[in-house]
Design a protein around this nucleic acid. Structure first.
Lengths: 208, 208
DNA sequence: ACCTGAACACCGTTCAAGT
DNA sequence: ACCTGAACACCGTTCAAGT
């Protein structure tokens, strides 16, 4: 079968899922496609563009349901959880994209469209929408990056220093649980947003 | 002068600050040190260990003041801001470390020691300290990563969709301001933590 | 238009040999 | 102990030549 841009991206994504972005090589990709390494360059200008294309293709798999009638708190939780599902599907690529592709989450993406709608429904004033988008995206990509690269696990496994309160050996802490910390981050984000909105409504004008 | 481990790290850090981690090469580093590329391997086992060493050295520059009498909210803000100062000093290295070195923030680091103390002073129950550390580290590294790689700027620059409320052309939004979003993230984090602590104190037991 | 072989300018790292 | 030259097994990409 002939080489196509989409076929190249799909093969690259398979290799990345299997061995990570750093192991992806134009030469290995060509071998996987049963092609000459140089043939790739007729469909993709260079390796960086290849990785952007793969990320765009994987990002297009993002799906979320609208739930327009639910409270905004629930909607934003669902949106973040759906994003996490995508991250789990292609962890190596998504981790790479978060750190190397500042434009991975783009204006027209369903994620941002949904987020903007939710923040509007929550009552965030229009001029504060962009900075609130930045806030939410930072927090969500932050916790997902930490989960994907293992930092979250390490942090959550840190033993409380000293102060062994009586006998703790029987309680058997259930072990670090990424799900739990992810929910904790979402709870904190939502609660923090709620407080800001309430304060705004109560008439506090000046924001420094 | 003879090659030393510390000297190698320092030279590597200079090259990274100037041209980024991806431009650092054993061969270029050797040239900068006026040495043979192979001489480096007598002081550092390989490139990955080199980068870990450089990160450890840069991380050791982290400084923060205790402020033990201030309210925990102010202390956590200061701690995060001091960490941001370090990130600004070596942006390329720190961005790399956040995404590639899950153990960049380690148990004994002054940052984690201070954070643990602050959370304890805030009244976070001992068994919840680790997950709260994970929460705070995720959020702080998340917003710093986004700032360092430019995503924060992009997100904060997104124009509110449609709904041009009358004449907006004279208002001249002050342009995306990373400082502002960073403070917003901290405010949200602190407020979210406050709410959890208050809820806990009010006697709500069960945590899912 | 699409493919390809040879080549260029690099990499990190091994290894045997030097002092 | 520390250094070094040559070499190995790779990279991404250019370019002229093929069909």
């Amino acid at each position: 079968m002939p080489l196509t841009e989409a076929g190249i991206y799909a093969a690259a994504l398979r290799l990345i899922d299997a061995d990570g972005v750093e192991a992806l090589t134009m030469r290995k990709l060509a071998t996987a496609l049963d092609a000459n390494p140089m043939s790739l360059y007729h469909h993709v200008p260079n390796k960086e563009a290849l990785l952007r294309g793969v990320a765009r293709m994987a990002g297009a798999q993002f799906r979320t349901v609208a739930l327009e009638d639910a409270p905004w708190q629930e909607r934003i939780r669902l949106l973040a959880t759906d994003f996490r599902t995508l991250a789990h599907r292609h962890p190596r690529l998504i981790a790479y994209s978060f750190s190397h592709q500042p434009d991975f989450i783009q204006h027209e993406d369903p994620f941002l469209v949904a987020l903007t709608a939710i923040l509007g429904a929550a009552g965030v004033p229009l001029p504060e929408i962009p900075e609130t988008i930045a806030l939410v995206c930072s927090v969500v990509t932050g916790v997902l990056t930490a989960e994907l690269n293992g930092a979250l696990h390490q942090w959550a496994s840190i033993e409380p220093p000293a102060v062994p309160t009586a006998d703790d050996s029987g309680s058997e802490r259930p072990g670090p649980d990424e799900d739990r910390v992810f929910r904790l981050v979402l709870d904190t984000l939502v609660t923090g947003l709620e407080s800001r909105l309430t304060a705004d409504r109560d008439g506090q004008a000046g924001r420094r």
